[in-house]
Computed example of a mutant assay.
Amino acid sequence: MNLSERLRQKSLVLKDQFGIGLTRATDNRIHLDAAISWLKHAQDVTGNGGVAQTWLVRLNKWAPAYPETTGYIIPTLYRYATLTGDEDSRIRARRMADWEIEIQHPSGGVLAGALGDSDQPTVFNTGQVIFGWVRAFEEAGDERYREAAIRAANWLCDILDDDGCWRSWGSPMTGKQINTYNTRTAWSLARVHAITGERRFLDAAVRNGEWALTQAQPNGWLANNCLQDNQQPFTHTIAYAMRGLLEIGDYAQRGDLLDAARNIGDAMLDAMPANGRLPGRFNNRWRSTAHWSCLTGDCQLGINWGRLYQIIGESKYREATARILSFVKRTQRLDGGDPNTRGGIKGSHPINGGYHPWQYPNWATKFYADALMINEAIG
């Protein structure tokens, strides 16, 4: 690395640390339009219909298309199209859904990693693409999307252990075979139940939620819930697990699962400072173990609190969504000449933090857009 590049990177870190050049938070729609424009750009650079995994700041290049997150970006674009009337987002969402069918594994599952990383399916990625196929079917009525979702859901049910835990076909990218955050995968099975009425899918979703409860401490913290270090999970995976429990609990009318999700949400709310800058990792006493913020997890928790407000009605959850977004908004660059970063959300703040450092992962911007839209929906 030459001197000018070292100085550039040091400058980026210092600007984040001292708040130099941060965006002035403004109307949700301005931030949302910029985020969607970034996601469209991340799709365009691949040329195949999928969305590039991440913008690599240090390498100054895009990673290949990422099946997992392309799958759950589909509902985001449909949601945006419904909100704004943007037909281009609807067209792009269908291109993504079609691409996911083209690359679906013969087993019905979805490939691990970015395109080209693996030829094997994995549990979590499969669940996330199911969300896209289900929403595409609901929007377009094309039976191909329903059939793809059913094939994927059947594979997930076939490999689920009797106690509700997925112990095989975990991601080779993490090295961890047991993941409590697979409740978000289980939630996708509930979504397939919604378009099929097949009881098998809902039973499997609930069974995984019940297994997740066996991993909970009395304070609500979940074991086996991180990509890297189960002793101090990211807010990203904490939020994944919470959302799965929340949505399965709401759909299946299971108060115990809803209560577990609420316990997590309350713990995270209690830990959030007044400025909304939540630390990126937490140990089993709900104490932070990081000084940087995981922007992806921030956005996901904003969504989760918004959903708690919609389900339970307590104003503290609506206020929490607004507070955490007030921080994340300030980290989004709304202007500047680089389309690879303009409108996107970093993995961490500062940019060299411990979650996807020096990157703009597409799912950070996806969840940011979702958080902005739910913030609008709840007022």
Rank of each mutant, 00 (worst) to 15 (best):
A149K: 07
I150H: 08
R151Q: 15
A152S: 15
A152I: 10
A153S: 15
A153Q: 12
N154C: 06
N154H: 13
W155F: 08
W155R: 07
L156I: 14
C157M: 03
D158V: 08
I159A: 08
I159D: 05
I159F: 11
L160F: 03
L160W: 03
D162H: 13
D162P: 06
D162R: 14
G164S: 09
C165L: 04
W166E: 02
W166R: 02
W166L: 01
S168L: 05
S168I: 12
S168R: 13
W169C: 09
W169Q: 12
G170E: 09
S171R: 12
P172N: 01
M173K: 08
T174Q: 12
T174P: 04
T174H: 15
G175Q: 05
K176M: 11
K176N: 13
Q177H: 03
Q177L: 05
Q177G: 02
Y181I: 05
N182F: 13
N182C: 07
N182T: 11
T183M: 07
T183R: 02
R184K: 13
R184D: 05
A186P: 02
A186L: 06
W187N: 01
W187L: 04
W187A: 04
W187I: 04
S188F: 11
L189S: 02
L189V: 06
A190R: 06
A190V: 10
A190I: 04
A190P: 02
R191Y: 04
V192G: 08
H193W: 12
H193F: 15
H193C: 00
A194G: 11
A194H: 10
T196Y: 01
G197Y: 05
E198K: 10
E198V: 06
E198N: 14
R199M: 08
R200K: 15
R200S: 12
R200N: 09
F201A: 03
F201V: 04
F201Y: 14
F201C: 05
F201D: 01
F201R: 02
L202H: 07
L202N: 04
D203W: 01
D203I: 06
D203Y: 02
A204S: 14
A204W: 03
A204E: 05
A205G: 13
A205D: 09
A205E: 11
V206H: 02
R207M: 09
R207D: 00
N208A: 00
N208D: 01
N208I: 01
G209L: 06
E210L: 13
E210Y: 09
E210C: 07
W211A: 01
A212Y: 03
A212N: 07
L213R: 12
L213G: 09
L213Q: 10
T214E: 14
Q215T: 12
A216M: 13
Q217H: 13
P218Y: 04
P218W: 04
P218A: 03
